[in-house]
Simulated scan of single mutants.
Amino acid sequence: MITYALRLRAAHDAGDVHVFTAMSTLKAIARRVHALEEEAAEHEKAIRKIVSAWRPDLLALTGVGPIVAATVLAAWSHAGRCATTRHLRCSRALRRSLLRRARRSVIASTVPATGS
């Protein structure tokens, strides 16, 4: 839909000013969405690089991408948060939690948004 909106051409000589305004606005919003998608992809690539350098084993888990892995690392990386380094290991409970979150993320991304 974004690709289609980017190809719209609002004719200045359109008889209806409302149609011209709506089409112009839709194209402007589509350009912004496209730019934000590109920016998000760049950020995800940078996050993947950081996570890969720190804990590549998290990315090896099924359904765990760079965003989920970075969230887990941020939650478990604060000084004093864990009593020992043993707690920093990827335990079975943490793996289950990661997989549950990844599954929810996959399900949410496959459900079409309303109005698409």
Rank of each mutant, 00 (worst) to 15 (best):
V111F: 04
R96D: 08
V72D: 05
T114V: 12
I107E: 15
T21W: 02
D13G: 07
F20V: 15
E39D: 14
I50M: 07
A41P: 04
V33M: 14
A108E: 05
R86Q: 14
D13I: 14
E37G: 04
D13T: 15
L88R: 03
W76Q: 10
A75L: 05
R9P: 04
R101N: 04
T114D: 13
A93D: 08
K45S: 07
K49V: 06
A28H: 09
R81H: 09
L88I: 04
A102Y: 00
C82D: 09
A14D: 12
P112Q: 05
I67C: 02
I50C: 05
R9L: 06
I50S: 04
H12T: 10
H78G: 03
R104S: 13
V106A: 15
A5M: 15
L73F: 01
P56S: 03
R89Q: 15
S24T: 13
A69E: 01
D16H: 08
A93G: 12
L98V: 10
L36F: 05
A102P: 03
V68Q: 00
H43C: 07
H34T: 15
A53T: 11
T3M: 15
R95F: 03
G15A: 10
R32V: 09
A22M: 13
A74L: 08
A108C: 13
L8F: 05
A102L: 03
L36W: 04
M23H: 11
T21R: 14
R55D: 05
